[in-house]
Amino acid sequence: MGTVTRVGISGWRYPRWRGTFYPVGLPQRDELGYAAARLGTIELNGSFYSLQRPSSYQQWAAQTPEDFVLAVKGGRFVTHLKKLVDVQVPLANFFASGVLALGRRLGPVLWQLPPTLPYDPDRLAAFFALLPRTTARAAELAAQHDARLDGRAWTTTDADRPLHHALEVRGAGYVEPGFVELLRAHDIALVVADSAGRWPQLFDVTSDVVYVRLHGHAELYASGYPRTLLEEWAARVRAWSAGETDVGGPLVASHAPRAPHGREVYVYFDNDAKVHAPFDAMSLAAMLRDGPPGAAAQ
């Protein structure tokens, strides 16, 4: 496990960004490439709303640099409609829809639970047991897709690579030590979410991957992050990347062991409504490149 740190955005196709982040006249088909040239990662969220096609994943891969990472948001059919129950075939369909066509660009898979889903450790444990932890196992699962994907399924991988999963929760019932320990037992990253106080903000490290979603500090999906707050997040990211677990945020369980070789950290800005996300992401990435305040003078 390396100490890779990537900062990016959740989605990229927003009309309000045209003429602000995206130059006037930039064709829509070139927006992903434009964003990818300025960021380290992007979260694919169309996959949350519906099964995409392999051709789309192929196009997204072709429009991004070879070392770029695309996180993929798991389908709401699994999380919101099926509520994680009886989901082996829906999971097979999700992975057969083309996720593996991203090849080396495939990053963590994000699963977002609805606020109405109560904490149920048995339900979560059964779901975690179904999740493939390598791309080879994901390909095996994809081959179990149902007839809806006949003729359009992608069930192969170009190489066998680790596959990481992250879970974002939105209910107060998850603020309990048993939940954190369950995630650690299954090596699932607990999403650190900043949501203007709407949902729990938990800083427990539960995997060698740390996954952060910044939805807006003062106003959900809308407010930007001033430099002082970005510096706080930069300090946390540096600590996580170095393998630390004490990042100055609220914990619901004991600290995870320090990772001597560091952790991978992914940060996604989802405050898109007023076009703050791409600029906040670039600012945070620059802070991380430049080092902590005063570092250059030492």
Rank of each mutant, 00 (worst) to 15 (best):
R227N: 12
A96G: 10
A242K: 03
I9G: 05
P108V: 01
V267M: 13
E43F: 13
V265I: 09
T206C: 07
F203T: 14
E219Q: 15
V209I: 13
Q52W: 11
G216D: 13
F279V: 10
Y221S: 06
Y174A: 09
S283W: 08
R38M: 06
L124C: 11
R236K: 14
L230I: 03
Y268H: 14
L130C: 07
L106T: 11
W233K: 00
I9L: 14
K82F: 04
P257L: 08
W60K: 12
V247S: 01
A139Q: 07
A126V: 01
A172N: 13
K83Q: 13
G243I: 14
R133E: 04
P114T: 10
A96T: 04
T135R: 03
A129Y: 05
L131G: 06
R227C: 01
L113P: 03
A259R: 02
A129R: 10
E168Y: 01
R170H: 08
A295E: 15
G19L: 04
V267Y: 03
V69A: 11
V72S: 00
S97L: 07
E219S: 14
A142Q: 09
L32A: 07
R6F: 01
T64G: 05
T3L: 09
A125K: 11
D280K: 00
V99Q: 00
R152S: 14
G294Q: 13
G178H: 04
S47P: 02
L230T: 10
D290C: 11
L32T: 03
V24N: 15
L70C: 10
T245V: 14
Q59N: 14
G294T: 00
S47G: 04
F128M: 08
P162W: 11
K274F: 15
G294C: 08
L190A: 04
G25P: 01
P15F: 02
V109N: 04
Y225Q: 03
V192W: 10
A189I: 01
A71P: 00
P108L: 10
A143E: 13
P257T: 01
L251P: 02
D122A: 12
V210A: 15
